[in-house]
């Protein structure tokens, strides 16, 4: 039997710029879902870029998307602590509520995204990571820094709440 051992040279690791170039769009989308605000999302991704360059040497090169999202989430949590309060979610105006009642099933997606934005932060990030960005339970659990079982349970509760909220918004019975 011939045993082939592939040795990957240390210098084959991508550069931070290459990784960021590949992942930036995903990180920005996740940041938008996390912060619910375009400006905050851009700010926190900008901080993430700086930290990614600073910490690049200590990164093992595996799962760069998870690594970057984890940095971004930690930065966002620190920002929130500095502000001492969560940013207020935009209030839905009455006129908009009327609009939502009139839309038909073609606008299902809008109900779903609106419902997603209405969820609490932990639930929103769980659904964003697994159901929008397609990360595995394991990767997402690592990002939010909870055990796998805890994450699964959180994701399942998040989906149930999302479903109830969609039904509420669309005026359908549960």
């Amino acid at each position: 039997m011939i045993l082939i051992i592939l040795v990957i040279p240390a210098d084959s690791k991508l550069t931070p710029a290459q990784v960021l170039e590949q992942e930036l769009e995903t990180i920005l989308r996740v940041a938008k879902r996390l912060t619910l605000n375009e400006a905050d999302a851009e700010d926190v991704v900008s901080q993430t870029i700086i930290i990614a360059f600073q910490k690049w040497e200590s990164f093992d090169g595996r799962h760069p998307r998870s690594w970057l999202i984890q940095i971004m989430r930690n930065e966002w949590l620190q920002n929130l602590r500095k502000r001492k309060s969560r940013p207020e979610t935009e209030l839905v105006e009455a006129a908009e509520e009327g609009f939502w009642r009139e839309v038909d099933s073609r606008l299902e997606a809008q109900f779903i995204y609106k419902a997603l934005d209405d969820l609490g932060e932990d639930f929103r990030i769980a659904i964003t990571l697994c159901d929008l960005e397609g990360l595995s339970y394991q990767e997402a659990a690592q990002i939010v820094d909870v055990p796998l079982g805890t994450f699964q349970s959180r994701l399942f509760r998040a989906r149930k709440q999302l479903r109830s909220r969609v039904l509420e918004l669309s005026g359908e019975p549960a």
């Binding site: 920005l28 779903i112 989906r159 999302l162």
Partner: peptide, 20 residues
Amino acid sequence: TLNTLKLGSEPANADALARL
């Protein structure tokens, strides 16, 4: 719901992406 989430993920803000 899950299919809609997967398919309808809105693109990132192009201006912000360019700046980043």
